[in-house]
């Protein structure tokens, strides 16, 4: 009896965890790709995700568009935004100290949060309306809601598409080469600035989609939503091995499951610490993350 109940809960929590985790993964991909190429923790990435969510909200409430259109539009808004952020706040600092771009990223992050708060007229959360009829599908011991299915499908599609782009296209090849060795890649005639812009664009598109999906899932968005989700997604990227695209997906889903299971196991009051605790543990035993390549010490 107990066992049966436990199993039922376990499968349900697993589904919840994977759903949550795939949203982390979508955002973690942006962090990992940017870090892989220019070794920068893009702290403003969480804000790109937040702006994606707000774009989606405006579109579905004011223009009453279909949620798929909203996702696409959010991606289209986030792409130029991220390219602009890179141009203004990071590119001039590429040859600077390691801390300078970090502080600059924090500045962008604070700027965007405040800007959205001002435009919106307060930090209170806004309701994200129900855009699709939310029915519940029962599959064995597990209940799926329509939104959960959409998130899982969309996230998988986007990740497959990303993997394809990186593996088989010309620009993908250039990305991999740049991430391998920035200097050499530029010597080989790769326009690294274009590659960096492209990387930011792809990351932003994923984050924008993630923002709308999260808005649909949790029905609430606010100007500071990018902060904790951003930090946790970065944790996910490091967990999986920063710079590694499959690593970010794995890390995100792993983190989502760990959080949901941790709450279910009664560690709910420590929820915010789970991601960071895991991160520290993984870093201590395998500093490069689950799928990361060994760090080279260059003399």
């Amino acid at each position: 009896m107990f066992w049966q109940q436990f199993l039922q809960q376990f499968w349900q929590q697993l589904v919840n965890g994977v759903t949550l985790g795939s949203t982390y993964a979508l955002i973690a991909l942006g962090y990992t790709m940017v870090y892989g190429i220019i070794q920068l923790i893009n702290f403003a990435h969480g804000e790109v995700y937040m702006i994606g969510a707000f774009t989606g909200l405006i579109l579905v409430t004011v223009y009453k568009v279909n949620f798929m259109v909203a996702i696409l539009a959010a991606m289209l808004v986030c792409v130029p935004l991220a390219i602009l952020i890179e141009r203004v706040a990071y590119r001039p600092l590429r040859r600077s100290t390691r801390l300078a771009p970090l502080i600059s990223a924090l500045g962008v992050s604070i700027f965007l949060q405040t800007l959205v708060t001002l435009i919106k007229g307060g930090p209170n959360p806004l309701a994200f309306p129900q855009v699709i009829q939310d029915t519940v599908y029962v599959l064995g011991p597990v209940r799926f809601s329509t939104v959960q299915v959409i998130i899982l499908v969309m996230a998988s599609l986007l990740m497959v598409f990303l993997q394809f782009t990186v593996k088989y296209t010309r620009i993908g090849k250039a990305m991999r080469a740049t991430s391998e060795d920035y200097e050499t890649a530029s010597l080989m005639g790769i326009n690294v600035n274009r590659v960096v812009s492209f990387t930011f664009a792809v990351g932003a598109a994923l984050a924008g989609a993630g923002g709308v999906l999260v808005g649909m899932y949790f029905n609430s968005i606010h100007p500071f939503m990018g902060v904790t989700v951003g930090l946790k997604s970065f944790c996910a990227a490091v967990l999986g091995g920063i710079g590694s695209i499959p690593g970010a997906m794995l890390g995100g889903i792993f983190l989502g499951i760990a959080e949901v299971m941790g709450v279910a196991a009664g560690f709910d009051t420590y929820k915010e610490a789970i991601a960071f605790g895991l991160l520290i543990l993984v870093l201590l035993f395998k500093p490069t993350g689950l799928l990361g390549l060994p760090i080279q010490r260059k003399v």
């Binding site: 870090y35 070794q39 923790i41 390691r98 970090l102 930090l231 970065f234 944790c235 490091v238 009051t269 420590y270 915010e272 610490a273 991601a275 960071f276 605790g277 991160l279 520290i280 870093l283 201590l284 500093p287 760090i295």
Partner: peptide, 27 residues
């Protein structure tokens, strides 16, 4: 344990430690 890590890894570990300490004090 963590000063063996370098640069950003150390940064993110200390960030994590900070959050953990805060949550512990809350509890």
């Amino acid at each position: 344990p963590s000063l063996r890590l370098t640069g950003d890894y150390l940064g993110i570990t200390t960030l994590g430690f900070g959050e953990i300490v805060r949550v512990v004090f809350i509890n």
